[in-house]
Structure formats: C-alpha cells, structure tokens
Simulated assay, not measured.
Amino acid sequence: MRRPTHKTGAAIKQKLPVIADGYLLTERERDALRIISLGGNKMAAQKLAISPSTVRTYVESMFRKLECPTQAAGR
C-alpha cells in the first residue's frame, strides 16, 4: 500500500466521518482507517497494538463494506 502524502492524508482524514457514517464500519475499523491514511498498515498495527495480519483483515473488511473491488480503487 502506497503511503499517502501529507496533503492526501489530511484530505482523507477530513472525509472519514462521511465515509464511516455512511457504512457500517466498526469503531476499531475507523481507528485503523484513520491511522492507515496517515502512515500505513505498519503504523496502524503499532498504534493499535495489533498484528499486521489483523490490520490486513480490517482492511479487507473495510473494502468489502465500502464496495471497493481493489486497494487501487480505494485510493
């Protein structure tokens, strides 16, 4: 997963409440999404004190819920 630039990360962070409220994302998925948008999966795993594989599971679940067929479509 490509790390977003600061500007892109900020833009995503501003849109998160709209995205998250329109779909049934869990609070933990929202937390992960916020951190991933700012620093990637590895950072999310560290900040949330979970394994990278758990972060991947959250990402897969979020993409399913957001109806994104691929990670590229989610960018």
Rank of each mutant, 00 (worst) to 15 (best):
43 M>E: 14
63 F>D: 07
43 M>T: 13
37 S>V: 06
19 I>A: 06
11 A>E: 04
27 E>T: 11
13 K>R: 04
49 A>M: 09
61 S>Q: 14
70 T>L: 09
45 A>K: 09
57 T>S: 14
64 R>V: 11
74 G>D: 13
29 E>K: 05
26 T>P: 04
50 I>A: 02
21 D>V: 00
44 A>F: 15
71 Q>Y: 08
27 E>W: 07
13 K>V: 04
18 V>P: 00
68 C>S: 03
28 R>L: 12
35 I>A: 08
70 T>E: 09
3 R>P: 03
18 V>W: 00
51 S>K: 13
1 M>D: 05
5 T>F: 01
19 I>S: 01
70 T>Q: 11
59 V>H: 10
10 A>Q: 09
11 A>F: 02
46 Q>P: 01
21 D>N: 15
40 G>H: 05
70 T>A: 13
44 A>W: 11
27 E>N: 10
43 M>V: 12
24 L>G: 15
72 A>H: 12
21 D>M: 07
46 Q>H: 12
67 E>K: 08
17 P>I: 01
32 A>Y: 05
5 T>P: 00
9 G>W: 00
40 G>R: 05
39 G>V: 10
64 R>G: 10
64 R>S: 12
52 P>G: 13
59 V>T: 14
56 R>Q: 11
36 I>K: 07
11 A>I: 01
3 R>Q: 05
50 I>M: 14
38 L>I: 05
67 E>Y: 04
56 R>P: 03
1 M>S: 06
39 G>C: 09
19 I>H: 02
55 V>R: 07
42 K>V: 11
26 T>V: 01
67 E>L: 02
63 F>C: 07
60 E>L: 13
74 G>K: 10
63 F>I: 02
35 I>W: 11
15 K>I: 01
70 T>Y: 09
22 G>M: 03
21 D>Q: 14
55 V>A: 08
73 A>T: 05
33 L>Y: 08
18 V>D: 06
14 Q>T: 07
74 G>P: 08
14 Q>P: 02
43 M>Q: 13
29 E>Y: 10
72 A>C: 03
53 S>G: 10
23 Y>I: 11
60 E>F: 10
61 S>Y: 06
57 T>W: 08
21 D>T: 09
37 S>R: 07
14 Q>F: 05
73 A>Q: 07
60 E>V: 06
45 A>P: 12
68 C>Q: 12
69 P>F: 05
73 A>Y: 08
38 L>D: 12
41 N>K: 12
